[in-house]
Write a protein that binds this DNA or RNA. Sequence first.
RNA 1: GCCCUCAUGAUGGAAUUGGUAGACAUAACGGACUUAAAAUCCGUGGCCUCUUUUGGCGUGCAGGUUCAAGUCCUGCUGAGGGCACCA
Length: 861
Amino acid sequence: MIPHRPYQAKNIEKKWQNIWEKNNVFETSPNNNKKNYYVLEMFPYPSGKIHMGHVRVYTLGDVLARYKRAKGFNVLHPMGWDAFGMPAENAAFENKVHPAIWTKKNIDNMREQLKAMGLSYDWQLEFSTCDPLYIECQQKIFLDFYKNNLAYRKEAWANWDPIDQTVLSNEQVIDGKGWRSGAKVERRKLPQWFFKITEFADELIDSLDKLDNWSNQVKVMQKNWIGRSEGLKLKFKISDNSVLPKNTDFIEVYTTRPDTIFGASFIAIAPDHPLSKDLANNNKDLQKFIFECNQIGTSEEALEKAEKKGFNTKIQVHHPFVEGEYLPVYIANFVLMSYGTGAIFGVPAHDQRDLDFANKLNLPIKSVVESQNAEDNNISNIAYTGNGKIINSNFLNGMNIIEAKKHIIKIAEEKSIGKKSKQFRLHDWCASRQRYWGCPVPIILCNDCGIVPVPNSQLPVLLPNDVTFDKPGNPLDYHEKWNTIDCPECGRSAKRETQTFDTFVDSSWYALRYPAPKSKDPIDKKQMLQWCPPDQYVGGIEHAILHLLYSRFFNRALKKTNYVDFDEPFKGLFCQGMVCHKTYKGPNGWLEPEEIFFKDNKAFQKSDLQEVEIGRSEKMSKSKKNIVDPMSIIETYGADTARLFMLSDSPPERDLDWSISGVDGCWKYLKKIWSHLHNYSFNNNDEGLLLKAKEQDNSIRREIHLCIQATTENIESFRYNSAVASIRKLSNILLAYKSNTEEAIKEQIILEGWKSFLIMMAPITPHITAELWKLIDKDSSFLDQPWPSVDKNLLKDKKLVIAVQINGKLKNTIEIEQVEANDKELQKNKALALYNIKNAIINNTPKKIIVIPGKVINIVI
RNA sequence: GCCCUCAUGAUGGAAUUGGUAGACAUAACGGACUUAAAAUCCGUGGCCUCUUUUGGCGUGCAGGUUCAAGUCCUGCUGAGGGCACCA
C-alpha cells in the first residue's frame, strides 16, 4: 500500500480558500435560468476578533447558502460591518487611537478570520455602516422620514446612561439598567429624535401572524413588547373644581374593564399626573408624598413588594352612571403616568392592586361580577378576575363580560363622556445619541427657522476627524468649527444637530443595501426587487426585540416613503442558540479552560494543582473566562473540524455546549475519511453499470438513497444535527468496504455512495470534501456538482419487517415481501403462527386483531 | 402574577403525520497492536431478574383518550426565557 499524505487541514484549507477567491466563485451574478435565493446572517460589530458565537451563526448560514447553491439556486450571500458604536470611542479614549482607524483595523482583522472559516461570501458586496456612501444614503432616508412625519424632534424625558453618557431607548433599558454598560439608568429631560414606530403598532402586531417562517418565540416576544390592550377612555366630572389651581373640569381614565364601572369605589392618578403637580404646588405634604413615590419607582427590588400608598386629594368626582354617587380621588404610587392616561378607576372586587389599595385605606368593596363558583364571590384578600355574570350594575345586569363591555362603551360614547380606545406599551423609538462615533443626524438648528433639514446638495454630513476624547460627553458639541454653519434657509449663523443615530438605525435597513452596495440611490429598486426581502435571515435571539422590531418598523416606513414595496424585512427568520462552556472557579476566582487539567472527572489548576470547582455550562463570556478562541481551534484542528462540531450534536436553535472532546471526535472522523479515501482506488464513472445491479447490491444503494432523502429533508428544515447524523450513518456503511472488490458493479455503487457523501458533506466541511473529490473525479468542478437526487424506486426494500404486538407491547416481528405489504390476511396469519404469540393466546382468545398493513399487527387479549 | 419554550441512557441528542424508543455522537469499559503510552482497529453498553433463553419495567410526576402515547388531552412538579404595580 502506498502511504498517503496525512490530513493537514491548514494547508488544504488555505489552498481552497485561495482558489475560491482567485476565481471569484461566490460572486453573485444575474442568472435568468435560476431562481434567486438570498441568505443573510446578522452582520457583526467589528470588535477586533471573531468569537464562537460568530462561528456558529456564520456556519449555519454558510451551510444553507452552499446547499441552496448545490440545489440549483442563484445565491446571494453577503457580509458587512455594523461599524459604528461605543466600543470604538472607548478604545479611542483608552489607547488614543481614532475610532475610524481602530474600526478599520478591526474589520481588516476580522475579515481575515472569517475567510479562514471558508465562508462562501461574495466579498465584492462588502460595506460597512461608517462608509461615507452608507452615511449619505441613510441621511437621505432619514430626511424622507422626517418630511413624511415619521421622525420628529421633541423635548422629552429620556433614559440617561451615566456611564456611556448618552440616552437609551426603552428597548435598551433592561431591569432599569443600560443594555451595554449595566449602569443604573437616570431620567433626564433632553431634546431627542424619535421615530414614529407607534404609527405602525397595530400592523406590527397583526402581521406577525403572517410570518410563517419566523421563530415563534420571537413573535411572542414582539407581541408582548408592543403590548396592545383594548378598552375605554372615560371622563369623570369633578364635583367641585374651585379648590383646583387651574380650571380642570374632569379626570380622564383608561380601563380595559369598563364592564366593572358600577363596582368602582375610587379614582387614582399617577404621582406625576399634571393634576398631582398642580395640587402639590402649595401642599408640602403632597410634595413629600410624590418625592417618596419617585424614590420607590427607581429601585426595582422595592417595586416588586412595594406597599400600596395613597394620598387623599379631598377631590370628588361624579360617578358617570349613578346619579348622586361620588368617588374620592387619590394619588397612588402604583399608577403610572406612562401608560394609558395616568389615571384609573379602582374596582377592588375585580382587580388585585385595587383590592390591596382599598383594604389599606378602608375603601368599599362592591362585587359586580358573579362567578359560578361560590367561593370566588366572597372577596376579602383575593380579587375575582374571571368570567361571570354582571350583577349590581343597573342596565348591565345579567350580561356576560364581553356583552357588558360592548354595551357600556356604546353608552359612554353616546353620552360623549368616553371613547373606545387602544393602548400600547410600545413608545416611539428614541433614536438619537449624544455620541461622536455614529451617523450624524442631518439637521441644522436655526434660531429663526427652527429645525432645518440639510439640503440634499450638502449631503453627506460626515464626522469631523480632528476630535479628542479627553473630555466626557460628546466631542461634536465642543467642535465649534464643525457645528457652526449658515442656515440654508435664512443664511444666518446656526448650529448643526450634534447628535448621531443609534446604531440600530444603521442595522435597520442594511439588508436592502447588499444587492447594490455602491449605488447612489439608498436602495437600488431594480437590484433590490430581484433579491429582497432576504429569504432566510439567521441570527441570535438576543435581537428578538431591538433589531428585529426596528427593522420591521423601518421597512414599513421605507414603504411609505416609496423605497420598497413590501412590508416585512425578512421572509424567514431563524434564531440560533448560544455557545456555552463549563465554568471553572478556583480559590482565586474564575479560570480559563486552558488553565485546567482533568483527572478522575475532577478538575485541577495547572499552576498549583489545587482542585477547581466545575460550574454549570454558561454562555461564553469574558467575565466568567469560559471562552475558547475560534482562531486557536482553526489553527490546531482546521475550519472544517470547527464547522462540523458546530453542527454535529445540538439542534441549531438550542444552546450548544462546547467540549474539546467533541471537537477532537470530529477531527478524528475527518482524518478517518481522509485516509480511507486515499487508500481506496476508484473506478471510472460508469452509471450504466448501476442499472445492472443485483438484488443484494441494491440493498447498499437503498441505504445511499435513504440517506440522501434524510439529509435533504433535515437540511431543508434546519435540523442540521440530524443531517450530520444521517451523513455519518452513510459513511459508516461505506467505510465497511475497506478494500476494492473485483466486482465492477459493486465498485460503481460504492463510488456512487462516496460521491453523494462528498457532495452532501460539502456545505458542512467545504475544504476537505473539495480536496477528496479530486481522488474520485479529477476533471469536474466540485462546486458545480448538483445535489444528489433520490431514486424513489430504490427506497422500498424487497422485504419488510413488521412488528407484532400484544396489547400494544412488542412481542415479536415477522418478515414479509414488499409485494405482500397490503395483504392483511397473510400478515395476520403469519403473526399468529409465531411461537411465542401462539403460546400467549393459547389460554386467551384474542378479542380483536388490528392489522395496519405493512407496519404493525396488534393482538388484543 | 401573566405569556412562551422545554423535560428521553453517564452526556449532547434521534424518533417528520400516534405504530418496533434510544439513530448519530461524546465520555466510559473490555480486547487487539505496542516494552509502554498515544494513535488506530474490533467489541460492550436504558434498568431489573436469570447461567442463557425468556420475562418484567422504562421517555419529569398523576390521571385520561386510543387496539396502540415520548408524541394527543387535563392537572401538577422542575428548568430556561420574555413581560410586569400596563389599569
